[in-house]
Design a protein around this nucleic acid. Structure first.
Lengths: 138, 138
DNA sequence: CGGTATCCATTTGGATACTG
DNA sequence: CAGTATCCAAATGGATACCG
């Protein structure tokens, strides 16, 4: 099976399944952070990932652990310490995620701009229309 | 500003914003399909993307159009024909998306496997535990 | 510190019916 | 063909309180 073959319509369900996990915002953030920093504690991650709630971070980490992308190490101390890092599999995901991250950094402004233009157009055409539904059943 | 600099904590909100759009399943699928096939009609996309509803495909395409990633061309015929393709900006997203797609194809099985193992462990430890809550308020 | 449990508002998205 | 509109069930996720 050649490598180029991945461009076929097949694997659509695999992609779909994978995306359900790593396609979500928090997962990408966690992998990104762990990729850069190697090992992080729960609250370190929480502080670094802007806006994540404790609940969501916990869920995200559990799912990543379940999928074999992240390891969780508990140190039985008081107060407890739990450290997270990427597995070997998780590290291979770093490349694709980084690419996405870089793309975001490079093109975020273009997107924001495109949105503004699109919205202006919508407003303009909406205003140009002769008031759509009024008078119905009058 | 050097390219390596994107590895800083900054751009977290840009990434977050971008992920809200392209991090969702259907968007990735649409960009993937349009990237491969160049130009596609609405129902062609619908048939190629397994499981997408008409509603979701419409919403996804509108959002991608709004973000400047996809163009929408209407041909005033009967029956109507509407064609979608990637913009230049959209094409630059192809690289990152392809990388993710290839990664999915390569590692899907490893993930499924990891899940199975994780779930087995959970079941095992659950069974090993001495019945957690019972007798409370007895 | 690193969680879990519960509640509840909001969002999401499929199903269905209708339209130019 | 390519949508739009509406309804409604289910999933999502924040807030809060409590625990080892």
């Amino acid at each position: 099976m050649s490598l180029q073959d991945t461009s076929q319509v097949s694997n659509c369900s695999a992609m779909s399944d994978v995306l359900n996990r790593i396609g979500d915002k928090w997962s990408v953030m966690v992998v990104g952070m762990l990729g850069r920093n190697g090992t992080l504690r729960f609250n370190e991650l929480k502080r670094m990932i802007n806006g994540v709630s404790q609940r969501m971070l916990t869920l995200t980490l559990r799912n990543l652990e379940r999928d074999g992308l992240v390891t969780r190490t508990i140190y039985p101390e008081v107060p407890p310490r739990v450290e997270y890092s990427l597995t070997e599999l998780g590290k291979t995901l770093q490349g694709p995620i980084s690419a996405l991250w870089d793309w975001s950094a490079e093109n975020h402004f273009a997107i924001v701009e495109a949105r503004a233009i699109y919205d202006l157009r919508q407003d303009a055409t909406a205003a140009a229309e002769p008031r759509k539904i009024a008078y119905a059943r009058g």
